[in-house]
């Protein structure tokens, strides 16, 4: 299992989406999110996109006001995770059309559906944007 959790956090440090692939209690999650967000948001553009925290490695990327933070195992390929974050953003872009923080908030379940099609149990399932989106589009059509 490579990916341990995926967080989307805005500039103010508020969590906008959280998906964990391992069990943590509510308190642990809150504490972890707080620590990570503080660490990552304090970093400058020039610094590298990886932060080591506890036994995780956090790979993060910023898109406008939204931070995408992915916690991975220590032996995961960090550069590939960066690429994965970009793929996630592009996929959301394709669905929402230039995705923004509000899209994710108001369509939280859809964002989760997309993530579900991309990652299962911490492993990548699918890398083709149209394959990822087809079940979601299907659902939109029928409802």
């Amino acid at each position: 299992m490579g990916i341990r959790f995926i967080l989307m956090v805005n500039k103010q440090g508020q969590t906008r989406l959280a998906q964990y692939y391992e069990w943590l209690t509510l308190e642990e999650r809150r504490a972890l999110e707080g620590e990570i967000v503080r660490k990552c948001l304090a970093r400058t553009e020039q610094q590298c996109s990886f932060v080591e925290h506890r036994n995780y490695k956090i790979v993060y990327r910023r898109y406008a006001s939204l931070f995408f933070l992915v916690g991975v195992d220590n032996d995961e390929n960090e550069l590939a995770i960066l690429e994965f974050i970009h793929l996630l953003v592009e996929t959301m872009d394709r669905h929402f059309g230039n995705v923004c923080e509000l899209d994710i908030m108001f369509h939280l379940e859809k964002a989760h559906f997309m993530l579900e099609e991309m990652v299962m149990n911490g492993c990548i399932v699918e890398t083709s944007k149209s394959n990822i989106l087809s079940p979601i589009q299907l659902m939109d059509k029928t409802s």
């Binding site: 969590t15 906008r16 509510l26 999650r29 809150r30 999110e33 939280l108």
Partner: peptide
């Protein structure tokens, strides 16, 4: 789900 994400 939203409430859960906020940590409640």
């Amino acid at each position: 789900m939203f409430i859960h994400m906020l940590g409640y």
